[in-house]
Design a protein around this nucleic acid. Structure first.
Lengths: 183, 183
DNA sequence: CATGCAGTTCAAAACGGCTTGAACTATATG
DNA sequence: CATATAGTTCAAGCCGTTTTGAACTGCATG
């Protein structure tokens, strides 16, 4: 959840490798959702390219199609592979790796978010609790202020609860997508 | 939902106006949650200061307490006022405005997110739909690709559904907080 | 083992959002 | 009306994140 003022791929750009127009529209759309989920736009774009094409591509091909740098592609693929949404395969005769899309994105988004966000919220709650304890220890603190600190803790609680429900929901919602994304 | 590697207010900083240590811990914690919700960290900090102190402050005071710039405070207050979480009051005798916290933050967070996110998701869905239509119009598109484009639309659907539930939940969760945050 | 291409690394550049601060406008006061 | 102080605006600067590209490593092949 951040600022969402992305550029809308107004047209086939100047250096297009061979991406069809509709491909780039779809690929960028996926890039935007995934960015919304807190990942890099280009992680989503790489995955989307591989998923749409349904053919294992080499890093060099991805680089040309999406107009990214060699180093960038390498790092993006490493992330996607680590998260299990892209598979690195070596066709028997061929001497270099090819990459292909694997499983759906939300599956991985959930996992990553789960691990990332909860420690985040836990930290906030810990800070608020610490603040309250310090305030309580300080004789000059008014009763009402302690009240307000406690109420702020509810803010963290509510956020955590909401986040939990969010993840649980996306698990259920996506239940049907589990298979939907294969083939 | 973005990267959450914030600095933990390790100690009373160098130029503190007169913020107590526990105050700054709490204020920063609120800044962090609110940033998580997609707002500016300092919007949360300003609100938190006013809420914790429960006394109307002048812009100059806020500026000193939180070590912000004059211009920054002006803009932050404008946003908070627009969202209805901070009230601008003028005490009879006094010649300058004072600001005080009003209602809880989640109330406003929900409203703003609601309006912001849905147009965001709508846009993504529209792009995916457009891509699919273009692909369908192109004779060279394979059947399987159209399938995959449709499946990508489920990604937007699932995201939207999850978001809706998220907001609804936060509404329920916060139901009890509605009053909790007053006085 | 020399050559060349695939893949990795990382310092530096590019980018984007946030904040600053100086110039400006508005408003109160004598 | 002159002056002072509060509040606003916005171009420029700052800062964190992402991307680039050149140097490097590793591996396959002749």
């Amino acid at each position: 959840m951040k600022g969402y003022l992305w550029q809308a791929t107004p047209s086939n750009d100047v250096h297009p490798a061979k991406l069809l127009h509709w491909e780039s529209v779809a690929i960028d759309a996926v890039g935007n959702v995934i960015e919304f989920w807190g990942f890099k736009r280009n992680q989503g774009r790489v995955w989307a390219l591989l998923y749409l094409r349904d053919v294992a591509h080499t890093a060099a091909e991805i680089e040309k199609e999406l107009d990214l740098s060699k180093g960038g592609v390498s790092m993006l693929l490493r992330d996607l592979e680590r998260w299990g949404v892209v598979l690195r395969v070596r066709t028997p005769g061929d001497s270099c790796w090819r990459y292909q899309a694997e499983t759906d994105l939300l599956h991985m988004a959930r996992r990553v978010i789960e691990e990332r966000e909860f420690s985040f919220i836990a930290r906030i709650r810990a800070d608020l609790e610490e603040a309250r304890k310090l305030a309580e220890a300080d004789a000059s603190t008014g009763k009402a202020q302690i009240q307000r600190l406690k109420r702020m803790e509810t803010l963290a609680d509510a956020t955590e609860k909401a986040l939990k429900l969010f993840l649980k929901t996306s698990r259920l919602d996506v239940g049907g997508m589990f298979d939907v994304f294969r083939g």
